[in-house]
Nucleic acid binder design. Structure first.
Length: 293
DNA sequence: CCGCGGGCCTGAGAGC
DNA sequence: TGCTCTCAGGCCCGCG
């Protein structure tokens, strides 16, 4: 499911239920997601107050009073929902009266706020891991992540620098979390379209021979900022799995200009092109060959 | 070091 | 209806 905007929406949705509340009870209903849970996973969570809920790239990070950090990744199909009230009365087993499919409810946090926070993930590409805060810098999952695309340090100069020596397409470079951390297939396609840059273009063409950013690099950074901010404002994109934590859908999918729009007319005024699709590095690329150069 | 392709999972949808 | 095939928002790993 989730690229940066969806993860950010989930973070905001979980804040009310989790920040400042204690994890009264935690359950991992299977022994693994993408990776096995740590043996002491539940023990390190129960009784801990969540002092803050942050995001790095596509990771959610819950700060615990113990000094641990709970790292959570949604993979392709992970989602959280917050259930308030009635279910809390249910003793023992983690159970909710709402009549939905619970087959893939894999993790539950019962919070002192009175809310149950439930992680559902059919494909189980998601995972959770507890790390001591003072060991975050050595965490392999986080090491090597590039800049936050909405952060201050991400600008045309930096993007040009990290693309300068790449021997790959611009599309592949933007999907590489070492270059910029948080974009996925949808928002890369949309940003390239908005910047009118071809996904096939060599990544290195964002920099001059001296390594200075080209106008293309500036356009691309502007487009990335715009598309991410608009997507966050729209609650993210709901294609299959993404839900806000209150169960509502995001609606940025209605604003896609190329993603999943193969065969449709290009929306750029006066272009008259047709949105095409092809495969790059095993992933679908959607673009307008006429206006993206 | 870098770039690429395979694999991990389940489920939805298309085609027969 | 039901089977088979393809594809899906991510990312680790092993190979060349």
């Amino acid at each position: 499911m989730p690229e940066l905007p969806e993860v950010e929406i989930v973070r905001r949705g979980l804040q009310g239920a989790m920040e400042g509340s204690k994890i009264v009870k935690a359950e991992a209903r299977r022994k693994d997601l993408r990776f096995p849970f740590q043996k002491d996973f539940v023990a390190r969570l129960e009784g801990q107050t969540v002092t803050g809920l942050g995001r790095r790239a596509k990771y959610l990070m819950a700060d615990l009073a113990s000094g641990d950090v709970l790292l959570m990744h949604l993979g392709m199909s992970g989602s959280f929902r917050v259930v308030e009230g009635d279910s809390v009365k249910t003793s023992g087993q983690f159970h909710h009266p709402r009549n939905e499919d619970r087959l893939h409810d894999h993790v539950m946090f019962r919070m002192s706020s009175g809310a149950d926070v439930i992680f559902n993930d059919p494909r189980r590409f998601g995972y959770m891991k507890i790390i001591a805060r003072n060991a975050l810098d050595d965490e392999p999952l986080l090491k090597g992540l590039g800049p936050e695309p909405l952060g201050n340090e991400f600008d045309a100069a930096m993007l040009a620098r990290s693309c300068a020596n790449r021997k790959t397409s611009l599309k592949a470079a933007l999907l590489d979390q070492r270059v910029v951390a948080g974009l996925g297939n949808i928002y890369v396609c949309e940003a390239l379209y908005r910047a009118q840059l071809s996904p096939r273009r060599l990544a290195a063409t964002l920099a001059t021979k001296k390594g200075e950013p080209t106008d293309h690099a500036k356009r691309l950074v502007t487009a990335i900022h715009a598309v991410l901010n608009q997507a966050i404002s729209a609650g993210g994109s709901s294609l299959r799995d993404h839900r806000q934590t209150n169960g509502e859908l995001g609606y940025f999918q209605h604003s896609f200009q190329v993603y999943d729009r193969e065969g449709e007319k290009c929306q750029t005024k006066g272009c008259g092109g047709i949105v095409r699709r092809f495969t790059q590095n095993g992933r679908s690329t959607f673009w307008c060959p006429k206006c993206q150069k």
